[in-house]
Amino acid sequence: MSIDKITGFLASAKLFSGLSPPELERIGNRMELLDFRAGDTVIGEGCADRALYMIVTGSLQALLLKEIPGRREQRPSPVRLNRMQAGEWFGEYALMDGRAASCSVVTTEESRVLRIGGAAFDELMAMEGRMAGVVYRNLALHFVERLRAKDKELDLMLV
């Protein structure tokens, strides 16, 4: 995938909305392209992979697997938390707080993702104040949107 195609893809992602083409290119130059088969685990719950992933093609799901890393107990069954498609991203929790992955992310079909490691992301954000402001604002809006959706789900369950 050429840098022009990567930059074009990043331009269409809500996370990078508001960034200029040169800024998108600087991000794209730091990303690696990864291909996965259906059923591959991209991130395992409890894994210390501090990175941001952008889905280029395919679909993935965020799961709490039956086996709980580091514990003897098991969940009664796997729990699907979210299904994600092209244009969406994951890994942002670990990217922000540096903690281990809170769930597993598994492909449901052949998928292609872009990955930027935490150190490269931090370096870019530290060097590029305007870029950091835009990206962190978009992340904050994403978190607020997710919280509002969960609030609505909880409200519906209590009614």
Rank of each mutant, 00 (worst) to 15 (best):
G118Y: 02
M157N: 05
Q74N: 12
G39W: 03
A100I: 08
F9H: 06
R30T: 03
L15V: 01
A13C: 15
D151H: 11
K14M: 10
P76R: 15
E128G: 07
A120M: 07
I43R: 00
G39E: 05
R146K: 04
A48L: 07
S104E: 06
A86Y: 03
P78T: 15
L154S: 09
V135W: 01
Q61E: 11
S102Y: 14
S17A: 13
E145R: 13
G70W: 08
T7H: 08
T108S: 14
M131E: 01
N138Y: 02
L114W: 01
T41P: 09
K66D: 03
D155S: 11
F9I: 01
A101G: 05
E92K: 02
E110W: 05
G98W: 12
N138R: 02
A13P: 03
E23L: 05
L15D: 00
E123A: 14
D151S: 14
F36C: 00
G8H: 07
G46V: 10
V42D: 00
K5I: 01
A120H: 07
A120S: 14
R71L: 13
R130F: 07
I3T: 07
L147I: 03
G18Q: 06
L154K: 09
L81I: 09
L65I: 04
T108H: 12
F9Y: 07
T107W: 09
P21M: 09
F90D: 00
L33V: 11
A51M: 12
Q85Y: 10
R80D: 11
R146D: 01
R50C: 12
S111T: 15
M127W: 06
S12N: 07
Y93E: 09
P78S: 14
L63R: 07
I55F: 08
A38S: 12
R80F: 07
L15P: 00
G44T: 03
R148Q: 13
F16T: 02
R26C: 01
D155R: 15
L34V: 00
P76Y: 13
G129C: 11
S77C: 08
A11P: 02
G46R: 15
Y136V: 08
R71F: 13
E73R: 11
E109W: 10
S77F: 13
G46L: 12
